[in-house]
């Protein structure tokens, strides 16, 4: 049910130079970069797809696109500094140049979700890969049933896109619920885990599609809560994260059972991978 758009370069292993047009600091260790191509146009992407970003001389990492698919001029990526490559990318200054390959992988089934109630459930940095889907959904919200964005983070200071969350929450056509694992008393919102938000939502489980992105533990518990609420396993989609290297299904680094996450994923239906999620060796 998930769709893909093929990478545009003739050689998918060859990075193209992209300029950092702007950088926005989201949290202490997360930044959002606007990238524009040095040559030609930005290729189209579908929400859920990722690019390989290359910090010259350091290395390459997969990063989901976090921008608006309706904007054809740029790629927007939200990156957390966790290793040498991502730290270099987060530190990239406006005007500097990164290598980019992509877009790669499968997409959120936004079109297939039309006519359904839609639960978009994100944890931590997982809101970034879902943001393009949220943009697309909110641009045509009348085509969906009830729409809810559920977002969980470690603490208030680690939440992404707080201005947008507030703006989405002010709309009449979407319910936004944000929770944190723990907080000091200055926070007056939910405290608790994301799956606990599901039972507070009003949706028809027999006609609901759910899009999930976040740490794998959170995905497992959220999918279990959705199944417990009556949502069909083939209506739950997860964005998986594995050690993607080639991004085109050749090297095998991201193999997840019978799938390569880079090529068959990262967006995969729960009914296909549920059994694998319970196997710690995979």
């Amino acid at each position: 049910m998930s769709a893909a758009i093929a990478p545009s370069p003739a050689d998918p292993m060859l990075p193209a130079p992209w300029r950092v047009r702007a950088v926005r600091r989201e949290t202490a260790d997360v930044a959002t970069l606007d990238l524009v191509p040095l040559e030609g146009d930005a290729p189209r992407f579908a929400p859920g797809q990722f690019n390989m970003l290359y910090a010259f001389g350091i290395g390459e990492v997969p990063v989901s696109v976090s921008g608006d698919p309706a904007d054809p001029t740029r790629f927007v990526h939200t990156v957390r500094a966790v290793g040498a490559v991502s730290t270099a990318i987060v530190a990239a200054a406006p005007g500097s140049v990164l290598g980019l390959r992509g877009p790669f992988g499968s997409a959120w089934p936004v079109d297939a979700a039309e006519g359904h109630d839609l639960l978009i459930v994100a944890g931590g940095l997982g809101l970034a890969p879902l943001r393009p889907a949220i943009y697309q959904v909110l641009a045509g919200s009348e085509r969906f049933g009830r729409i809810a964005v559920l977002y969980g983070g470690r603490g208030p200071a680690e939440l992404l896109f707080r201005d947008e969350l507030a703006a989405w929450g002010a709309r009449a056509d979407v319910t936004v619920a944000v929770t944190v694992d723990h907080s000091d008393p200055s926070w007056h919102g939910h405290v608790g885990v994301v799956p606990a938000l599901i039972k507070k939502m009003d949706f028809d489980p027999s006609n609901t599609m759910a899009l999930l992105c976040g740490p794998e533990v959170m995905l497992r518990f959220t999918a279990t809560a959705l199944r417990g609420a009556g949502v069909a396993a083939d209506h739950i989609f997860l964005s998986m994260e594995r050690n993607m290297k080639c991004a085109i299904g050749l090297c095998g680094h991201c193999q997840f059972g019978a799938d390569f996450v880079c090529k068959d994923g990262p967006v995969l239906p729960y009914d296909r991978i549920a059994a694998r999620l319970a196997v710690r060796e995979i």
Binding site: T78, R80, V82, G123, D181, E241
Partner: peptide, 20 residues
Amino acid sequence: VRRMQAARQQMLDVYGHTSA
């Protein structure tokens, strides 16, 4: 039981070190 399971998930601190 639900609260105990939630507390276990919170103990995991799952949001600390993921990348995208």
